[in-house]
């Protein structure tokens, strides 16, 4: 039995060498993976999205593939295609980059909806279909998709229903002063990646995931989650509240967070910690598109303790 708190510490320490100063984001991404979820990284170019994905892949000893989404990308470019093999005189399925354990889908919103949905189906089902044949994806299978919120020209924003399939939406943001200084003064950059030591095997990861479900949730916490969820739907603050799938994700994430913190029970603090990442992309305000404020408002106004 691997001690998850120790693993987490190792993971954060190792990842800190590459993406420094982003412990909380790494932790949340780690929580998402423990929860068997996919992550949407929404951020500006050049803040380390790819590095983060690669780091995680390496530390968790996951196969890593990257697909750059462009407007002329076809579904077959992602999931693979039937290729005619002359030597065997038959078509054979040639697996695409999706057949990996950790897939970085870079700039997902630049691809056409058709290509996007090919990926999203794979995320949802854990399998892909090509010419009527179903191919199972490897286990574990995680997607880290990135999108750039700034340049909207020539993009196809993900619809709400598909956003909901991402377990978390994270953003890295600019590094803080110290980290950036270290980054600039350093010379090795990505070369460090190759030096990272995996902190656990894929099998160990799977057993940790199974552990998440055993984390206890008391009535008090459950009712707090219910209040949060209901408030997002009923308070009039949001045009679109948290879906039941979102609520479920919130609960799972809170469990995983408790586990990461070395506890076997969930506290409201865990819920609050994962709430922005889990709920931010699933709710919509009445007017503004930025849900950061909305999420904060919900967290501020919903009483942690039942009256």
């Amino acid at each position: 039995m691997t001690d998850i708190a120790t693993v987490t510490q190792q993971l954060l320490a190792q990842a800190g060498k590459v993406v420094s100063g982003k412990d909380e984001v790494v932790r949340l991404a780690w929580v998402a993976i423990l929860s068997d979820g996919h992550v949407l990284l929404e951020d500006l170019p050049g803040v380390g999205k790819t590095s983060l994905a690669q780091t995680l892949g390496r530390l968790l000893s996951l196969d890593y593939q990257r697909v750059q989404f462009t407007s002329d990308l076809l579904p077959a470019d992602v999931i693979g295609a039937q290729v005619y093999r002359r030597d065997q005189e038959a078509f054979q399925f040639h697996p695409g980059p999706v057949f990996t354990q950790l897939l970085l889908a870079d700039e997902l919103n630049r691809a056409t909806p058709k290509a996007q949905s090919a990926l999203l189906e794979a995320m949802e089902e854990g399998q892909v279909s090509s010419d009527g044949v179903t191919h199972a994806l490897p286990v574990p299978f995680h997607v880290i998709a990135t999108q750039n919120p700034q340049s909207q020209a020539g993009t196809y924003p993900l619809p709400e229903s598909q956003l909901d399939r991402f377990f978390m939406r994270l953003s890295l943001g600019y590094p803080d002063l110290d980290s950036e200084k270290a980054l600039l003064s350093g010379t090795r950059g990505r070369a460090l990646l190759t030096e990272l030591k995996p902190v656990l095997t894929a099998d160990e990861l799977q057993s940790l995931k199974a552990d998440v479900g055993t984390v206890k949730v008391s009535d008090a916490v459950l009712s707090y989650v219910m209040r949060l969820v209901h408030s997002s739907r009923e308070s009039g603050l949001c045009r679109l509240g948290l879906s039941p799938r979102g609520a479920l994700a919130l609960m799972t994430a809170a469990r995983a967070m408790a586990l990461v913190e070395g506890r076997r029970y969930v506290m409201p603090d865990d819920v609050q910690r994962v709430f922005p990442a889990v709920a931010g992309h699933r709710i919509q305000g009445q007017r503004e598109h930025d849900t950061t404020i909305l999420v904060k408002q919900l967290l501020d106004e919903v009483d942690v303790i039942a009256a």
């Binding site: 209040r227 209901h230 308070s235 009039g236 106004e301 919903v302 009483d303 039942a306 009256a307």
Partner: peptide, 15 residues
């Protein structure tokens, strides 16, 4: 089934 006390202090829904 446990029921939960509503805590929202803000505005009521239009309905």
């Amino acid at each position: 089934m446990t029921q939960y006390v509503p805590i929202m202090r803000r505005v009521m829904p239009l309905s």
